[in-house]
Amino acid sequence: MRNIWTIAKREYDHYFITPIAYIVAFVILLILGFLFTAVVRSATDNAVYGYGSAPDITIINWWFAFLLMFGTPALTMRLVADETKTGTIELMLTAPIRDHELVIGKWLGSFLFILTIIFASLIYPIALNRFVTPSLDWQLVLSSYLGVALVAASFLALGVGISALFSNQIAAFFLSLIVCLGLFFLVGIPANIMPPGGAADFFQYMVMDTHFSSAFNAGSIKLSDIVYFVSLIALGLFTGTVAVEARRWN
């Protein structure tokens, strides 16, 4: 356990000296900032004319999840690929740590970085709370942010797994991006052209957006949705561990 934390801490600290991490954080927070302004603006405009509902965080957080599709591959692409490229993987594989500790540690480090961005974005619900009476629906806010965190954790785990498959960061980035896009939207496409039934249901279940938009971002925290995200995290970390172990067998 300590090893996981040692690696996570190193990766977290390392993000703060890389330009990519700052760019990802900056772009996400900047766009969220614009959205926040737009949401408040349109809500106040509507309120002046007497209609419309109170603004909430879910619109902003949907976009947050969307941006994570692009941000997380950028954060995970170097995690294992770089070690393979520079040869430091030999240090890690001859150190007294287990392969899964290495992979989980890297994932945890990147997740902590995303949590830092999420923490910075909390300014929006806090500000929003001052415009809404009596107050924001905090249960919705909590559920929404939990959804964002789970989306991030899943994308990051898949990204780490993919990074372990390559020594080229760019290849890792593009494959991660395709997988994230695929999972968020595209995997549901076959369901639209299939006859209704088990197979179509499966594809529909795989679409991340349904588990986010209609679930966490709508205020409901259901076990089946949690299982979905946890399974993706497990899949990503498992792939990563197997890929790292495979390097030993050359």
């Binding site: 390392h14 430091t88 030999e90 150190a95």
Partner: peptide, 22 residues
Amino acid sequence: PESVPLYTDMTAVEYLKFMADL
């Protein structure tokens, strides 16, 4: 190792402390 792999973005003591922590 022959290639002497190192984490070049850390200082010497940070790198050794990291390896010692591991």
